[in-house]
Amino acid sequence: MLEFDGLHKSYGDHHVLEGVGFAVAPGSMFGFCGANGAGKTTTMRIAMGLARPDAGQVRWRGRPLDEEGRRRMGYMPEERGLYPKMRVGEQLTWFARLHGLDAAAAARAAEEWSDRLGLGERRRSRVEELSLGNQQRVQLAAALVSRPEVLILDEPFSGLDPVGVDALADALLDQCRAGVPVVFSSHQLDLVERLCDAVGILARGRMVATGTVDDLRRRGSGGLLRVVAPDAGPGWAAALPGVRVVSERTGDTLLELADGADDQAVLAAALRTGRVSHFARREATLVELFREAVADPAQRTDREEVAA
């Protein structure tokens, strides 16, 4: 298990993390979501020893991570970083050696990973001569070249074209299948939903939700109901018991039903307004769950009062 436990960190008066904790099982992929400035990068930097937490610790296999432990981790920082004038092959070899591989093993691993990520042709090129997409691949290769036990990737998909996204996703799934816990942050929630076994949503320095996407759905609003009644006037559903209007747009209404609320009563109400062209339960997307989770509680109360 890779465990993040009770991390606190503040810079001056600014509290970035206030008790962040979650765990990632070996061989599973953890998607780390949160608005900009929520503290994802700080959390990952703490795991890599680049920032020191005011309290809390990160453990791998039950032991707090130290320098030796971190040497067996692969890391991709949010701000990409490579030596611009160093050649791809030499750079990968060197990073492998920094992670403790001997010269021969490092050279072999550099060759293998540059081939696997489609950089075989560019091994002798300087990094600055490569396209941004290829530089990103080198960055990923630098994280993977030491055969890490744990992968921590900060926004690995940002700036990639769809083909690049697929290649990276495949590489990460391979790692997962090999038993490596992978933690990555992303704003591309559809991607997180597709790839990750578990998701964590960070807001205001705390984990506001963790679990599988299904868990979050169940724990969340209990399902949404989409009703399309073209002739319905605004606010037709507002007074129904146990129903909250999530959104309403010229007859296309998204409703959230409280536990035990009767969806047939909603259908009857909708039919009273005229024709109903669509009536179906819909599972919340991660984007909706995310919006709900990170919404400021004060604002949410306001909205609920308005809705009620």
């Binding site: 890599m48 020893g49 680049l50 701000e79 970083g81 490579l82 611009p84 990073f95 920094l98 630098a142």
Partner: peptide
């Protein structure tokens, strides 16, 4: 400065002091 401006320093400091 090269290590700072190219941000490679973050990757380096993850493996050494």
């Amino acid at each position: 400065v090269e290590e700072k401006s190219s941000r490679v320093v973050e990757l380096l400091l993850a493996t050494m002091r």
